[in-house]
Design a protein around this nucleic acid. Structure first.
Lengths: 205, 205
DNA sequence: ACGTTAATCGTCATCGCGTGACGAAATCAA
DNA sequence: TTGATTTCGTCACGCGATGACGATTAACGT
């Protein structure tokens, strides 16, 4: 967690020499061109016209630069869950909320797909995923805890949060490598599957 | 993946100065005493009477030393899945297999709990989890793929493998921090929950 | 116009992880 | 004893990440 990005008027001090977004775009390009491990932070920083030290003032690690966008969507997920009416069944509510916050504009799709392909193929990035997924899982867990009347750190809410993320990650990856359908279709299918307990006779074809 | 540990008779060459198991026990002790981040590989190696370089000949990273035991259990899981009769429903088969390979002897429980507490609390260890979980997930995915008549890298098998791991991790953690029941009880409860789609009216109290 | 305050940045030093290269040590076999 | 084999230690190095500290750049107050 770093990255302020608050373009404030009337602020003092030396103006930023770059932005988190610029570092993100440069990193994305270099990672796809040369590979994640082969791209040093020094190179990214130089390409952005700043020093290596400055990069680490924007992001806590080299991997975090790719999770910038994802982190912001947790707030959207929480808001979507709050907006669901109380008479919608729990797993159906989760499905609606998750699918709702994953409707991307067409112009954002290529970058999203590039990012997910990197995350899905580079071990160092998969390793960095855990801490970023944590907040997402908790959002689901706390919603489930409220519905079930349990604490969020007990078995069922925890399991629901993680299982939900698990199937969504599968949907993301299928969508990222194949390009034959909308992301929401995959998510909807995956979340439907978990809500019927993966019962083969109830899985959609 | 490293760690040979093949005590071969009639072999040539200089005998090993330590073993993976010894390094594992020493690491476990130092990690709990001083913390994972505070314990350098240099210290572990010195405590084992070898050099830092030798540690990295046994394990690929400092974190991997804690996953040594876990990696070995994937083979057991695959075998357990193969042994399930074909007329047992898919999710029920998975539940039986997972619970079956997680019956630990009483004397192994303290070390297991120590390891899981570390993995659950140290970010660097959580990050290292991804690559070790991968083989476990694939074992489940491939079993599900066989039952569903699908490829293992398609949505449903992938989702089943990951969701299964997700709820099992929740069970592991609940068991590791509370100490009020057998691990298999938590696992059974978590796997039952996913098999009924987390339907509140069908969750056990 | 000038000094003050505030924010960002660059440089430098440092630590630890992880890896490659290469020779030394220890054991068995011929 | 000699040679082959296996493990080990030393050395060097690159890179990620962090702390300290002074230099830059701008707005603000007088």
């Amino acid at each position: 967690m770093r990255v302020a990005d608050h373009p404030q008027a009337g602020r003092r001090g030396r103006p930023p020499g770059t932005s988190a977004r610029e570092l993100e775009l440069i990193s994305l390009r270099l990672f796809t061109e040369d590979g994640f491990d082969e791209t040093t932070v020094e190179r990214i920083a130089t390409a952005a016209g700043v020093s290596k030290r400055t990069f680490f003032r924007y992001f806590d690690s080299k991997a975090d630069v790719l999770w910038h966008a994802f982190d912001g969507e947790v707030r959207a997920l929480r808001a979507a869950l709050r907006a669901i009416r109380a008479d919608v069944p729990m797993m159906e509510a989760i499905r609606q909320a998750v699918v709702g916050v994953n409707r991307y504009r067409a112009q954002d799709v290529p970058e999203l797909r590039t990012r997910m392909n990197l995350i899905g193929s580079v071990p160092a990035l998969q390793a960095s995923a855990a801490q970023h997924y944590d907040a997402w899982e908790r959002a689901i867990s706390e919603f489930a805890a409220g519905r079930l009347g349990l604490a969020a750190d007990t078995l069922y809410p925890l399991a629901i949060g993680r299982a939900t993320l698990a199937v969504c990650r599968s949907a993301y990856e299928q969508w990222a490598e194949r390009a034959d359908a909308d992301l929401t279709v995959y998510l909807d299918q995956a979340l439907h599957a978990v809500s019927v307990g993966f019962d083969p006779s109830r899985l959609r074809q």
